[in-house]
Structure formats: C-alpha cells, structure tokens
C-alpha cells in the first residue's frame, strides 16, 4: 500500500489533536492549504472530509496525536498532504479496519475506507501497541 512518500515543503505545520476542537482546527488548516494549492472545490471538499475522518480516528482510537500538513511537490505537480500520527493501540487487522462498515466502536465504519477513496495517495502504517500513522495527499489537476 505504500508508494514513494512525497517530499514535504519546509513550511509544513503541526497541530496536536487532543480534543473535539482540535478536529475542527485540523479541518480548517487543511482547507486553507487546499485553497492555497488551488484544488478544485470538489477536491477541497474530499480532502477536508478525509482529514476530518482521520483526525477523529486519531482522537477517538489513537487516544490523541498530531497532524502534520503542508504543500508537497512531485515532478511538476503540487498537492496537499496531511499526516496523522498517534501512539495508541495500533490496528490489529488492517484489512478488517479498511472494510466498509466495520467498526470496533459505535461509528459507521466508513472513515478509514472512505478517506482512502477520497484522496489520491493513501498510506497507512500501524503496529499493535505502538501506534498508527496515516498519510493522505490530494494533487491539484
């Protein structure tokens, strides 16, 4: 599932995700970058929605963590990347977690699988007992 990691620009920002309020801040920060990157309105909406899902997972399942986000370049393309990282319990069965409708909590089980569909690049690294890192990128067309 992993491909070459895009190189983050020097000016990426990091915010902590420790409360519901931080999930709102994460959405707003990603939206600002998506606008700066001139993503189409639909692509902005998709990326911000994916970021919202991942930020909430970081908070609810990861027990909190950080989001690092910024503009990225690859070849002549520019995009927005957001990386969510926590030191929570990790995901024991990744295939299951990425199945539409599967949840270990009270959710709809759409956040992770849906976020993957909404972005261009999606990488997930997880280790039981150590934590989870999800990176998503949307490229301007």
């Amino acid at each position: 599932m992993s491909g070459p990691r895009p190189v983050p620009d020097a000016d990426h920002e990091t915010i902590t995700i420790e409360s519901n309020d931080d999930v709102v801040r994460a959405r707003q920060l990603v939206r600002t970058l998506a606008q700066r990157c001139k993503l189409s309105l639909v692509d902005q909406t998709k990326l911000v929605t994916a970021a919202s899902e991942l930020a909430r997972n970081t908070l609810v399942y990861g027990g909190g963590g950080v989001m690092r986000t910024g503009l990225v370049r690859r070849d002549s393309r520019v995009g927005v990347t957001a990386v969510f990282e926590d030191s929570g319990p990790g995901i024991p069965d990744l295939d299951l977690a990425l199945t539409d409708g599967w949840t270990s909590g009270g959710g709809l089980g759409l956040g992770l699988s849906g976020a993957r569909r909404l972005v261009d690049d999606f990488t997930l690294d997880t280790e039981v007992g150590r934590g989870t890192q999800v990176a998503v990128t949307k490229w301007a067309r």
Binding site: L41, V42, Q44, T45, K46, T49, E53, D100, G101, L108, L110, S113, G114, A115, R117, L118
Partner: peptide, 14 residues
C-alpha cells in the same frame, strides 16, 4: 446541500 458535499458523501459511502 452543496454539490461538492453530495459528491463527497456518496464517495465516502454514505
């Protein structure tokens, strides 16, 4: 509902 929201919701699976 905005068009971009509708498109995103369907792709999300909702």
């Amino acid at each position: 509902m905005r068009p971009a929201v509708a498109i995103t919701l369907v792709e999300l699976g909702l």
